[in-house]
Amino acid sequence: MNLHHADVRRILELLDTAEHLDSLDLRIGDVVLQARKPGAALLSTPPAELPATAAPAVRTPPPAPASAPTAAPAAVSSPAASEVPERMIAIRAPMPGMFYRTPAPDQPPFVEEGQQVEASATLCLVEVMKMFNSVAAPAAGRVHSILVEHGQSVEHHQILMIVDPAEAEAAA
């Protein structure tokens, strides 16, 4: 059984929406998928092996003992949703992965702060499992700020950039 991009996206969506699931580890053939919500403790057990004909199964981690200290969530450099200025648009990571500002190591960045962008223009890439996902501008505007460094790991829904659509209206 092959694990496709759509399968990984669906699995990550399930993890994101599951209230009582903080992480999952699964293995399908040679592919190992380990995903954790921010602040979830790492497990020391290896992922369960699935036969090639079985459907992917999600395994919940055992509850941590009450006396064990919990790991503090990693600090995320992006502002909270309430910190995004009212008229501006937060560009969020569609999935956890690596953030890239350039299409290739020897190429210039897709955008710079202060640059005008058209609706649906590629702003950056998020790579997960060697698959690069383009993140497009939802509206025309000016890139107000870029909140993540090139090559940095990002979480699902983490704010990557902030676009000011009012700047596009003023330029028109």
Rank of each mutant, 00 (worst) to 15 (best):
G151P: 02
A52P: 04
A35P: 01
Q116K: 07
P94S: 03
A75E: 04
S120Y: 15
S23F: 14
A71K: 05
E118H: 06
L33C: 01
T53R: 10
A119L: 09
A168I: 12
P65D: 03
G39W: 00
V128N: 07
V8I: 11
T17G: 12
N2C: 01
H156A: 14
A172V: 09
D25R: 15
A121F: 04
L15I: 07
E118G: 12
V58C: 15
A139K: 09
M95S: 09
A172N: 09
P109W: 06
R92S: 06
P105Y: 12
E83H: 11
L160N: 06
R9H: 11
L125A: 02
V31N: 04
S67G: 15
A170L: 07
F132I: 02
D106P: 03
N133M: 08
E113A: 10
A35Y: 13
Q115I: 10
V154D: 08
A35S: 05
Q115S: 04
T102N: 12
L42I: 15
E13F: 02
N133K: 08
P56K: 13
V163G: 01
E13Y: 07
I91D: 04
L15S: 05
P61M: 03
V148T: 13
L160M: 00
T122W: 12
L3G: 00
D7G: 00
A80G: 15
H150T: 01
V111T: 00
G141V: 05
P61D: 02
L14E: 15
